Simulated assay, not measured.
Amino acid sequence: MSDHLGVAVVRAQPDRPDITRLDAMPDRCEVLPGDAVVARRGGGLLWVDAPGSPALVSALHACLGVTGPGADRVLAAVAGQVSSLASGGVSFALVLSNDAGTGVALWAGKGQPAVDGVPVSGSSVDGGTLATGFALGRSLYVGPGQSAPGTPPGVSYDLVEGTVPGGGATLHLSAAAPAAAAPVQAPAQSSFSTGTDAGFGAGRGASAARPDSGEQTAFWRPDPSEAAPILRFDDGMVVTIDEDLVLGRRPDNHEMVASGSARAVPIADTQNVLSSAHAALTRSGREVSLVDLGSLNGTHVAGPEATEWTQLEPGVAHPLSDGDRLLLGWTVITFEQPQE
């Protein structure tokens, strides 16, 4: 029992095989860039946007280890504490899955879980909405509003385990585990009373094998055989420059993308300071150049040790060096060129 939240904590018991986690791991968890928090643990998924409320984020994060009988009661009790933990408005969506392939979900505000693109419905509880026993389908979404459309390869990134910045996430589920498979015990949780977000992501799968699909992220170890330069965004997203790129708020319609000569890299823009097609990166052998595409607020660059930004002239290519920083709107990106 947690004194801070006053809710019972479900723990894994050696003689309670019914308390399990989903044994069939999702094939891929696509996390969209953004300023909120996305967490994954086993078959559980969380999105939470609660600025200034680390206690609430930590409480919901701890719920990822809760599953099996009684999970709905624990989540309902947590929902009742949301208003006392959150400062101002809060949005979140939390889904837990079990070995039977069904889910338990809790959400509030703009948060919404959806299965195969269909929003999950539930019953109102004090502090949110609770749903239990629904089928997980082929894809499971958590985030704000309706399920997000598919994003181009290299924009979303695959979260194996842990916590990252993100504007929402979709799990693409694998087939259900065979009935004879040994259940996986839910990890014991010490309490729901964590007051800060320190220690988040301790279970990140940084050493896990990288799948063939998707781009490198800050939580994968790069394949040493890959010599392509990369862009490392300030929110943790990493994009490989294996072809020309167009960056911006909605770069899909730019002529370079439409003609197939470049790949679109959308950037989350909550401040509305990015142009639809803001800047491009072009390759010529190992050299990579940055070009401003006539953006409204300009494209800036600074060397690794520079203390001031230099604004680029529209249409004029600027060769990049390892460690250069790019400023597009309020987004800071570091260019990394691997050694030969």
Rank of each mutant, 00 (worst) to 15 (best):
G236R: 09
I267D: 02
T240W: 14
T20E: 02
A36I: 04
P113G: 11
A218Y: 08
E30C: 08
R40Y: 00
L281M: 10
N297V: 12
R250W: 03
V238G: 02
V31S: 00
R210V: 13
D292A: 01
D23E: 15
Y157D: 06
A175W: 05
T67C: 13
V78L: 13
A59G: 11
D126A: 07
P149E: 02
T194S: 13
P113Y: 12
T132G: 07
G89A: 07
A206T: 14
A100W: 08
M25G: 08
D269Q: 12
G103P: 11
A176S: 12
V115C: 12
G195S: 12
D126C: 01
G43Y: 05
D242N: 13
T282N: 07
L296P: 01
C29H: 04
A55K: 03
L75G: 06
G44M: 02
G89L: 08
G303R: 00
V7C: 12
H254C: 05
I267H: 02
P144Y: 01
Q112E: 10
A108Y: 00
F192Y: 15
P17F: 09
A228F: 15
G70A: 13
E340S: 10
P14E: 09
F134S: 01
F335A: 13
Q112C: 11
V74S: 07
L140A: 07
A182M: 06
A277Y: 07
L296T: 15
T217A: 15
D244M: 07
V160G: 04
P153Y: 00
A8I: 09
A198W: 02
H278S: 05
S284I: 03
D269E: 08
A71G: 03
S147N: 01
E215N: 10
A59L: 10
A169H: 02
A279G: 04
D235F: 06
L75H: 06
L293T: 12
A202I: 04
S289I: 12
D324W: 14
H61T: 14
G127C: 09
D3C: 00
D23V: 14
S124F: 11
S58G: 10
S156Y: 03
A79F: 09
G285D: 07
T240K: 15
